[in-house]
Nucleic acid binder design. Structure first.
Length: 465
RNA sequence: GUGGUCGUAGCUCAGCUGGUUAGAGCGUCAGAAUGUGGCUCUGAAGGUCGUGGGUUCGAAACCCAUCUUCCACCCCA
């Protein structure tokens, strides 16, 4: 039997202690901000029933779901789809696969945390206090093709509130965004838009069913330019008059108020659009009163694919790094409706921990102080000394000071090197001399200084810091 | 899912148009007066050249497939 090369699936990663310390720094920061805003944690299973997941993320989303094979010989009851057709052409085989999927797989890995949360709310509705504010920090999986900032397994940090349509929560979420990124030391811009405005635009130019195509095209304005956008819209079946009517939106610039004027003019023919504008104005008014440290603005081009959003949608970008959005979310008026609890409005956002990590790494924003864990290493000089050291070691641990002892009486050089490499700041040497005098030799590995201290003095000096 | 790209020691890479025993730097390990790390010196170990086929007298170099990396599209955290 040959030795196999160890490997992990595409788009997944191992995390070393050095990486985990930094990742935890992000998780802890996010978590503590969520908590001061009054959100409580929940967790849901890694896998959900496929029926819970399918159809919630659009056609694309369904393709990106990781499906779990059923246990047992699930093929037994299934007829060979090619049986009556001994020359299976390509077409029929594809559809057969699709139809066979539900027979062989009924579970899938979660794609995000919002849909499982909606399911959770419906299932536990009688135990929850509404408006229900929760946060959730767990991995999600997408069968996407990996690239920079895009993984197949990654962590999302979601905050959502369900049971209130109040725009105060949109404001609260934007405050959370501001607080989290201020604490992490990343400068950001929060872009927001409103699905009702997008729907209003489609409605006003006489193509309400083409909302998706229109938003996708508008989104490309920066990248491919006005002409190509118009061309693409026509290819997508939009009439000349509609494209003409859309021009003011495409050419719109200036301050938020200027844009609102343009849209209001357009929305004389769209009630939905007007509603969206009203929400936008309200949100902007509230935000202006707050002294946020990071930038925010309204951007009609922001689309966001997840098709359950119905109101405000938002997205956060790091100002100093080329990375997709590091946080995103929005309002969904009826997510729980699909699971049998209609009329409950929710709004939430999701922080992409892995992308935030990548950005912070690139910009070198991790504080040095989060590095080392063990603060004191006890050098091992032999069985006698070991027993003595163990007692002092235990005292330190009782005081909550992370400390460890070297496992065997190796050469001092080796033991100190171990301490150096683990970035342990202090080494304690207890040999014959120290045992007799009762004074410990304490070496500061950063400065190289060495002192003789009694146990009490030593512990006191550690507690001071 | 479509198109492209990368893959040589633990890491970063060199290896000219195919030609003997595949190299460097860093790292690792072992030494350099028996209780003192980082710096220095000496020495050593370490490579199925991503994997599997093929072309060839001969392949790390060429071809095909496959896996992985990264990029664009799509979509998204």
């Amino acid at each position: 039997m040959s030795v196999q090369k160890p490997s992990i699936p595409k788009g997944t990663r191992d995390f070393t202690p050095a990486e985990m310390v930094r990742r935890n720094y992000i998780f802890n920061t996010v978590r503590s901000v969520f908590e001061i805003f009054g959100y409580l944690p929940i967790e849901t299973p890694a896998m959900e029933n496929l029926s819970t997941l399918m159809g919630k993320y659009g056609e694309e989303g369904d393709k990106l779901l990781f499906k779990i094979l059923n246990s047992g010989n699930y093929l037994e009851g299934i007829r060979d789809p090619g049986a009556g057709n001994r020359e299976p052409d390509h077409e029929s085989r594809v559809t057969d696969l699709a139809s066979i999927t539900r027979h062989i797989s009924e579970k899938g890995l979660r794609y995000d945390l919002t849909v499982p949360f909606a399911r959770f709310v419906v299932q536990h509705q009688n135990e929850l206090v509404f408006p229900f504010k929760r946060y959730q920090i767990q991995p999600v999986w997408r069968a996407d093709r990996p690239q920079k900032g895009r993984y197949r397994e990654f962590f999302q940090c979601d905050v959502d509130v369900v049971g209130s349509p109040s725009l105060l929560y949109e404001v609260e979420l934007i405050q959370i965004i501001d607080e989290v990124f201020s604490r992490l030391g990343i400068q950001t811009t929060t872009l927001f838009n409103n699905r009702k405005i997008l729907a209003g635009i489609a409605e006003a130019i006489g193509a309400p069913e083409k909302m998706n195509e229109i938003t996708v095209a508008i989104d490309k304005l920066d990248k491919i330019g006005l002409e190509k956008v118009c061309l693409e819209l026509k290819e997508k079946g939009l009439g000349d008059s509609a494209v003409t009517a859309l021009q003011p939106v495409l050419l719109m610039e200036g301050r938020i108020n200027d844009k609102i004027v343009v849209l209001e003019d357009l929305f004389k023919r769209s009630e939905t659009g007007m509603k969206g504008i009203a929400e936008l104005k309200h949100l902007v008014t509230l935000l202006k009163d707050l002294d946020l440290r990071n930038k925010w603005t309204f951007d009609v081009r922001l689309a966001r694919g997840l098709n359950y959003y119905t109101g405000t949608i938002m997205e956060v970008k790091a100002n100093e790094a080329a990375m997709g959005s590091i946080c995103g979310g929005g309002r969904y008026d009826d997510l729980t409706g699909i699971f049998g609890l209609p009329g409950v409005s929710g709004v939430g956002i999701s922080f992409g921990a892995d992308r935030i990590y990548d950005v912070m790494n690139e910009l070198n924003r991790f504080p040095e102080t989060i590095q080392h864990t063990t603060r004191v290493l006890f050098v091992n000089f032999g069985p006698e000394e070991e027993r003595f050291a163990l007692k002092v070691l235990n005292e330190l641990r009782q005081e909550g000071i992370p400390a460890e002892i070297y496992p065997d009486p190796s050469k001092l050089k080796k033991q100190l090197e171990y301490a150096s490499r683990k970035q342990i700041p202090l080494a304690v040497l207890i040999g014959k001399d120290e045992m007799e005098s009762g004074l410990l030799t304490v070496k500061d590995l950063e400065s190289g200084e060495q002192n003789r201290l009694s146990r009490e003095e030593f512990i006191r000096s550690l507690k001071k810091i």
